[in-house]
């Protein structure tokens, strides 16, 4: 099908974009990479009346590191993150996650901030950003606020972004030296949305886990932190038993909804395997193995 008619706004500066969004209020919808929004419009599952295209906002096309934070602007494409040497050094977990989003032709257009704003429960980037304790910077004509990602995403395809606001940037704390990371997912076909995926970040101290972050996608209405697994990993050295225990703790109490990929128990099982694999790889990377 074809999209329903809409009015098209294409600001060339951030201030102009915020003024347009302010004026449009509830009616305004941001168009970033369009890789989630336009398919919905083609099916007429979304019929926005006003689109504000942010692709001309060159000032938001950046991925840069300063003061222990990797900042990713709203126009930065997923493929730019994948290629960014700076990001590879500062947040390798995020780079590993983005490489598993769709295929290159989609990543050439899709943006990092767009994926966060879209808040698909199966999406890789929100889960990786959750494990990394990222912050979302929301700008509007009235000013700016910084929202921890776990407060920003509030449900399936739902965020706490207010009408008139734009996700201007996501901010990712730089991963410390000596940390190990991994993003592991399973999908029936390469490039498809994952049945489930796990993002893991481990900070070791003398061979033992000092701090662990574990986040999952595809197992609930939004990405979730696995607090149980994080606790169980504290002090761990990476033995088989410790890995198994952490993976089991990660999925305890989860009841993923069934879909055409499989039932709830299947998805939980897949999630458990992903967590185990990710922890294992994170350990070997933290030790300098890979």
């Amino acid at each position: 099908m074809k999209p329903a008619p809409f009015a098209y706004h294409v600001p060339s500066a951030l201030t102009e974009a915020l003024a347009v969004l302010d004026e449009l209020g509830e009616e305004g919808r941001v168009l970033a990479g369009g890789q989630s929004l336009v398919p919905l419009m083609n099916f007429r599952l979304a019929q926005p009346t006003h689109l504000v295209d942010i692709n001309r906002l060159d000032e938001l096309d950046y991925i840069r590191r300063d003061d222990g934070v990797l900042a990713i602007g709203a126009r930065a494409r997923q493929s730019a993150l994948e290629r960014s040497q700076e990001a590879r050094g500062a947040a390798p977990l995020l780079v590993e996650a983005v490489a598993q989003v769709a295929h290159p032709p989609v990543r050439h257009r899709g943006t990092v901030c767009g994926s966060v704003a879209h808040a698909d429960p199966a999406a890789e980037l929100p889960a990786a950003l959750l494990a990394l304790d990222a912050e979302v910077v929301a700008s509007s004509r009235q000013g700016e606020r910084r929202i921890p990602i776990h407060e920003f995403i509030s449900g399936p395809f739902t965020t706490t972004l207010a009408p008139g606001e734009l996700v201007r940037e996501v901010r990712v704390p730089v991963s410390g030296a000596g940390s190990g990371y991994a993003f592991a997912e399973f999908s029936p076909r390469h490039g498809d949305f994952a049945v489930s995926g796990a993002a893991v970040l481990l900070q070791l101290e003398a061979g033992r886990v000092e701090r662990a972050s574990v986040a999952l996608c595809g197992v609930a209405g939004m990405p979730v932190r696995a607090a149980g697994a994080e606790q169980s990993l504290r002090g761990a050295r990476g033995s088989e038993e410790e890995l198994e225990a952490a993976a089991a703790a990660a999925v305890e109490g989860l009841t993923p909804s069934a879909d055409l990929h499989g039932g709830s128990a299947y998805r939980r099982r897949i999630a458990r395997v992903c967590v185990r694999r990710a922890i294992n790889l994170a350990f070997s990377r933290a030790r300098g193995g890979a």
Partner: peptide
């Protein structure tokens, strides 16, 4: 017509994109 099959792929500034989920105005 929703970005999955790739048969509409063209190059924009040398990079592959899906032309079914990009507007002509873009």
């Amino acid at each position: 017509e929703h970005g999955v099959c790739g048969t509409c792929t063209v190059l924009m500034n040398g990079e592959t994109i899906r032309s079914c989920i990009t507007f002509a105005v873009q």
